[in-house]
Amino acid sequence: MATGGRRGAAAAPLLVAVAALLLGAAGHLYPGEVCPGMDIRNNLTRLHELENCSVIEGHLQILLMFKTRPEDFRDLSFPKLIMITDYLLLFRVYGLESLKDLFPNLTVIRGSRLFFNYALVIFEMVHLKELGLYNLMNITRGSVRIEKNNELCYLATIDWSRILDSVEDNYIVLNKDDNEECGDICPGTAKGKTNCPATVINGQFVERCWTHSHCQKVCPTICKSHGCTAEGLCCHSECLGNCSQPDDPTKCVACRNFYLDGRCVETCPPPYYHFQDWRCVNFSFCQDLHHKCKNSRRQGCHQYVIHNNKCIPECPSGYTMNSSNLLCTPCLGPCPKVCHLLEGEKTIDSVTSAQELRGCTVINGSLIINIRGGNNLAAELEANLGLIEEISGYLKIRRSYALVSLSFFRKLRLIRGETLEIGNYSFYALDNQNLRQLWDWSKHNLTITQGKLFFHYNPKLCLSEIHKMEEVSGTKGRQERNDIALKTNGDQASCENELLKFSYIRTSFDKI
């Protein structure tokens, strides 16, 4: 039985969820670079991206490699990797027998973001014989899940209580170790020597080791999670996991709180800001991140802002960003909400898709409305799209047979046209069989910064309504002859009103 693990408890099935942008060198404390989270699957090609990484700022997932063999891993080693800020997950990587050479110096898994409450997941690794993470000293947050690894031993010899604050939620089941077939031998045991430290858990006094050649490092209890030197002297209180010299914040392997210019500090002093819960960055760093993602459509890219001495992905609820200094300031009234469309555009074809934009005031991208039916549609669209004030790209209304009016965009005031449909149009209306009105132009103002209007096959939309939009939106004169079809717009509506004058002759039985 794995020490510190839980057996036999019912657990939810383990679901495996399925960018080499360097964020800056980590400095003297770390020998390499800070790398983003990685999802490495199918083959070993991307694994080489770990070569210079000291910190993975995010998670590391290595999974679904069915053609790899043990010899493929023999020359692979990433000794610079010290810390993973989120979680480490391995799933069905064939041929991998140990992690001792792959990650010989991995010391800390912070667990800032977890995989279903777990910071370390080893699942269905069919050839893994031992973990071998002999320098792993601290899992700051989260638990361990090690399950269905039929060859995995050296679990009962690990004292997880020396690595985690609590072992109650560890789930370590259905491994070879369960069948008591392992016969784990710690260093020196074969020669009758006791080389590794022994600890007591559940009444068992057991030597602690990761492999037959690597003991588990056990520091004096007084050192807590700070770690200790090879001689057993406690590291500085700002260290986490390990250090090369005692009581020196510049000799830590990793930091308990924050890293700044080669030393570990309790908090980031001005003019620095907390970033990702582990390091200090200056304003320029946060500003660069903001600008890199301002026009990016890459998933996970955030326009970072500053709030409460932190550089964070977005302002919290009730705050909006001051564009001059990136500071989050309290909103006066309802907060603006910028919604970034991942692929640059979004099609609204149902109430469900409209709900995804609920509360958005600025759309960074283009909207395509293609709704053919739905219950209580006008009210639903207004509830979900009615706060949109600005669209950076274009607005396209296409084959939306259920629409009679666009009044559900009740606050839309600006279409920038930074991206144009077919390279020309910022407003595009095609084949809307029941569209009769755009907006009530006596109450609604709309500016279209650039781009043209396109109207074709809107049989109940009168040309007068379209011409009014040209005047109000500032697009009059931009359109070419064929942009607004004269014969297919309003051709099934009563669009022309003329005053009919009647004269009559009164007659009676005795007068003409």
Results as ranks from 00 to 15, higher is better:
Leu102Val: 13
Phe73Ile: 14
Phe78Val: 04
Asn117His: 07
Tyr273Thr: 07
Glu231Asn: 04
Gly111Thr: 00
Leu332Thr: 03
Asp72Met: 14
Asn282Ile: 12
Pro79His: 06
Asp169Gly: 13
Cys215Trp: 13
Asn325Thr: 04
Gly232Ser: 13
Asp39Met: 13
Ile139Ser: 01
Thr199Pro: 08
Asp159Ile: 10
Leu50Pro: 01
Ile158Ser: 06
Tyr272Lys: 04
Glu130Arg: 05
Glu181Arg: 05
Pro249Gly: 04
Glu33Lys: 09
Arg162Gly: 05
Ile163Gly: 01
Lys191Ile: 13
Lys100Thr: 07
Cys255Tyr: 01
Asp169Trp: 06
His274Gly: 15
Cys35Trp: 00
Asp165Ser: 06
Asn52Leu: 05
Arg256Val: 11
Asn309His: 12
Glu147Arg: 01
Val265Asp: 03
His59Gln: 11
Ser98Val: 01
Lys176Gly: 07
Gly142Pro: 00
Cys315Asn: 01
Asp39Arg: 13
Asp288Ser: 12
Glu124Gly: 03
Arg263Val: 07
Ser166Ile: 10
Tyr154Ala: 10
Lys176Glu: 10
Phe205Pro: 07
Phe283Leu: 09
Phe91His: 06
Asp277Arg: 09
Ile40Phe: 05
Gly111Gln: 00
Glu97Gln: 14
Val305Thr: 06
Lys217Met: 12
Leu120Arg: 01
Glu124Asn: 12
Arg92Leu: 15
Lys80Asn: 13
Ile163His: 01
Trp210Leu: 06
Val265Ile: 04
Phe116Gly: 12
Met83Arg: 00
Cys243Arg: 00
Phe115Tyr: 10
Tyr30Asn: 07
His290Thr: 12
Asp248Met: 03
Tyr30Lys: 01
Ser161Pro: 02
Met38Ile: 10
Gly262Phe: 03
Asn43Glu: 06
Pro79Tyr: 03
Glu71Trp: 03
Phe103Asn: 00
Phe78Gln: 02
Gly262Val: 02
Lys176Ala: 05
Gln299Tyr: 03
Glu180Phe: 06
Phe123Ser: 15
His290Cys: 15
Asp75Arg: 03
Leu76Met: 05
His127Ser: 15
Tyr259His: 09
Asp86Trp: 02
Asn105Glu: 04
His212Pro: 11
Thr229Lys: 05
Cys264Met: 01
Leu99Thr: 06
Leu44Glu: 11
Asp39Trp: 14
Asn135Asp: 06
Phe283Asp: 08
Arg256Gly: 03
Asp178Ser: 08
Thr250Glu: 06
Cys209Val: 03
Thr85Phe: 02
Arg256Phe: 07
Thr140Gly: 05
Arg110Gln: 12
Ile222Thr: 07
Leu47Trp: 02
His48Met: 08
Glu168Ser: 15
Asn242Val: 11
Asp159Gly: 11
Leu44Phe: 11
Glu231Ser: 08
Val121Asn: 01
Val144Gln: 01
Asp247Pro: 02
Gly95Val: 02
Asn175Trp: 12
Asn325Ser: 15
Gly58Val: 00
Gln276Asn: 11
Gly300Tyr: 05
Tyr259Ala: 12
Glu71His: 15
Ser166Gly: 07
Gly192Cys: 14
Lys148Ser: 15
Asp178Phe: 09
Thr250Val: 06
Arg74His: 15
Pro313Lys: 07
Asn149Gln: 03
Arg141Trp: 10
Gly32Ser: 03
Tyr154Thr: 09
Ser77Lys: 06
Asn149Ser: 10
Cys182Leu: 04
Ser324Gly: 10
Lys129Arg: 11
Ala230Arg: 01
His48Ile: 07
Asp177Ser: 03
Arg162Glu: 14
Ile306Thr: 05
Asp75Asn: 15
Arg69Lys: 02
Pro220Phe: 02
Thr199Arg: 08
Val265Leu: 09
Pro79Leu: 03
Leu99Tyr: 01
Ala156Asn: 15
Ile62Leu: 06
Pro271Asp: 02
Asp39Lys: 08
Pro104Gln: 01
Ala156Pro: 12
Glu71Phe: 11
His290Trp: 11
Pro36Gly: 15
Cys331Val: 14
Asp169Tyr: 06
Cys286Ile: 13
Ile84Cys: 01
Tyr171Leu: 08
Cys235Arg: 00
Asn242Lys: 06
Pro104Ile: 01
Val126Gly: 09
Phe116Met: 10
Phe103His: 00
Cys311Glu: 03
Asn52Ser: 08
Gln299His: 13
Arg298Thr: 14
Val144Asn: 02
Leu89Phe: 08
Lys100Gly: 10
Val55Arg: 00
Ile62Val: 14
Ile306Ala: 04
Pro36Ser: 05
Ser213His: 08
Leu131Ser: 03
Arg256Ser: 07
Met83Phe: 10
Val265His: 12
Ile109Arg: 00
Lys224Cys: 05
Arg256Lys: 09
Leu76Thr: 02
Ile56Gly: 00
Pro197Phe: 05
Pro336Ala: 05
Val265Gln: 02
Gly227Gln: 14
Arg162Ala: 12
Cys153Pro: 00
Ile56Asn: 00
Pro70Phe: 07
Cys235Ser: 00
Arg110Tyr: 03
Pro334Ser: 11
Glu124Lys: 06
Pro246Val: 07
Glu151Trp: 08
Asn170Val: 10
Pro271Glu: 15
Phe258Gly: 02
Asn52Val: 15
Val265Pro: 01
Val144Tyr: 02
His236Ile: 01
Cys234Asn: 02
Leu155His: 15
Leu260Ala: 08
Gly232Arg: 04
Arg162Ser: 06
